[in-house]
């Protein structure tokens, strides 16, 4: 059963289409990367998945149910920046979901329940390597630490779908590689469906089990805004660890990938070079399922 289905999605801003005829079915546990040129609508697509914006037409379903009209805890989000709360320490950032759930009136816990919430995030703090920095404010953390915190915070709600909007775009290349490893381990461990928007093709192929390319299939040279983007390439990547692995009981965070290779027969390690992967399918899904990628004369005419 598909975890996320998108049916005939259209998105227009002030009559200018950004996305058109987006159809998609994503299986549970898939790590989907979304790439495309600037302005191709990939971030818009992610905002639609999050219900941060509502589509002009079309439907988005998670586990068969239409998504709520506003952001809800079933979809976690990590933005490139501003994902954590600057006025809360690392610990307080992680305690926030428990406090919101435990106190509808104040959104704040006191005394014993507060202490229990604090103890509840101890494990998470140690796993993401922020134990030593637990009492610092986000402004005192490096970019990589902030994003680790943001990812951990988003995962606390156990979302069905984790959405990542260029989460590592502002990080140094070295830090980025570390973050990739952490993200892959969390993905395997939590067995969740991930959508990641990125402008870094290498990152997309390194992390994802499925890569979507957004682009315009129709162009009007006199009126560039006449048509929106859609999914032009849909690449499923075979990778030994692509399917969610057997669940380990409390798999250790460090050396998680080693445990992995013990299961899979010579499993491709997460940071292996992209050429080692084979493309399972390279099917340009043109709007009506036809094969042509040629710019076509419009059936709808200019808007």
């Amino acid at each position: 059963m598909s975890a996320v289905t998108v049916e005939n999605l259209f998105m227009e801003y002030d009559g200018n289409p950004v996305l058109e005829r987006v159809n998609l079915a994503v299986a549970h546990g898939t790590f989907t990367a979304i790439v495309g040129a600037s302005g191709c609508g990939k971030s818009t697509f992610l905002r639609l998945l999050l219900s941060q914006e509502r589509p002009t037409r079309g439907a988005i379903r998670i586990d068969g149910e239409p998504v709520a009209a506003e952001p809800t805890p079933d979809r976690g989000i990590v933005f490139q920046r501003y994902s954590v709360f600057p006025h809360l320490t690392v610990t307080e950032n992680l305690m926030l979901p428990a406090e919101l759930a435990g106190s509808r009136l104040f959104g704040r816990l006191f005394l014993g329940s507060r202490r229990r919430a604090r103890e509840g995030v101890t494990n998470t703090l140690q796993r993401i390597g922020l134990w030593a920095a637990r009492d610092r404010y986000p402004a005192q953390l490096s970019g990589g630490m902030q994003q680790r915190l943001a990812i951990a915070q988003a995962l606390l709600m156990k979302p069905k779908v984790l959405l990542l909007d260029e989460p590592f775009g502002a990080l140094d290349p070295g830090i980025r590689a570390d973050m990739h490893a952490i993200l892959l381990e969390l993905w395997r461990e939590e067995n969740m469906t991930v959508f990641m928007v990125t402008h870094d093709i290498g990152e997309a192929f390194k992390l994802a089990t499925r890569v979507l390319v957004f682009d315009k299939v129709r162009h009007d040279p006199d009126f560039p805004e006449a048509y929106g983007s859609t999914i032009t390439y849909d690449l499923a990547l075979t990778r030994k660890d692509a399917a969610p692995p057997p669940r380990l009981l409390n798999p250790p965070l460090e050396g998680g990938s080693k445990a992995q290779s013990a299961f899979g027969e010579g499993a491709a390690v997460a940071d292996g070079p992209p050429p080692s992967r084979t493309l399972l399918a390279q099917s340009p899904t043109s709007p009506r399922g036809g094969g042509s990628m040629e710019p076509r004369s419009s059936r709808q005419g200019a808007h």
């Binding site: 952001p71 989000i77 954590v84 979302p159």
Partner: peptide, 19 residues
């Protein structure tokens, strides 16, 4: 981004205001 993030963490409008 902060407000959307808080919504995905389950915050109501009033909790958004207070926290």
């Amino acid at each position: 981004e902060q407000i959307v993030k808080a919504e995905t963490l389950g915050a109501s409008t009033w909790q958004l205001v207070t926290r």
